[in-house]
Design a binder for these strands. Sequence first.
DNA 1: CGCTTAAAGGACATACTTATCCTTATTAGA
DNA 2: TCTAATAAGGATAAGTATGTCCTTTAAGCG
Lengths: 144, 144
Amino acid sequence: MLSKACEYCIKAVVFLAQRSKEGKLSIVKEIAQAIDSPEAFTAKVLQQLVKGGFISSVKGVKGGFFIEEKTLQHLNLLQIVTAIDGRGLIDNCMLGLNQCSEVNPCPVHHLYKGIKADIVQLLNCSLVNDLTIEFSQKLSVLKN
Amino acid sequence: MLSKACEYCIKAVVFLAQRSKEGKLSIVKEIAQAIDSPEAFTAKVLQQLVKGGFISSVKGVKGGFFIEEKTLQHLNLLQIVTAIDGRGLIDNCMLGLNQCSEVNPCPVHHLYKGIKADIVQLLNCSLVNDLTIEFSQKLSVLKN
DNA sequence: CGCTTAAAGGACATACTTATCCTTATTAGA
DNA sequence: TCTAATAAGGATAAGTATGTCCTTTAAGCG
Ligand code: FES
Ligand code: FES
């Protein structure tokens, strides 16, 4: 469904959002511990998020990653997923046809299209800010 | 979502079911052409299906693959997917937590669990026999 | 300025998936 | 019995995702 890189990104962003609301920067080490991910690989995917403009970073002593308040307001999971994994989840046929289409559907197209729409809606309606609130209240976890 | 191996399996099975209902065996070459897949790799995944008891094969001249009428009656996509890709799609957390659970949910668990249930239902309720009927009527395609 | 910290970036390593090739076993039919 | 056809199986290759390591760049601080 999602790549490891994408999973780490989503979890990192939820964690970062919480920390940013507390006015704190977080270094890779803290993030990797918080989401139970390999540190070096996490650093890589965080770079991608910075390039995509989803998170911000500060180099050097007292540096780290954070999310701008303004960005956080409208940041949702669909943005992150498409930035990291591309549009495959949204566009691809479940059985790998070159084109997912209504006119030349694969055998599961009509059953799958509703599910695909639900997935896109889940991602699109999941505001990172909302997920962070739940996480802050310990109603969800980022590792186990 | 599904591995290439699994995609080929599903398409191969739908094609084979149709041919079997016509009383014909199909050789790998025919199957690979019908579903637009690499021949040698297709041969491999067909072996897995044979081992799993989902399809049958006959070696030698006039040999090939087919599906027993009896098997076809109750064969559904969930059986194929779990045999080839394992239970990941059914069991895994969307964000890769070790355990997808109600008591320690990840931030998207409550949104995702309904979708996961829909996916499992889609697979479980998709009888290969029914998919084949649609395919026979040219209401769906296996390649494009 | 020089030292330390931390992100950025590049190169490399590992694992898994996908794909190909060649050999072996089995069967039908001449 | 011999040959051709075909699945089965093993070895290998190619490609992609995942993960690690080391160097470079930037920033704070004494
Ligand atoms: S054509 Fe296969 S899912 Fe749409
Ligand atoms: S805990 Fe993540 S999907 Fe259930």
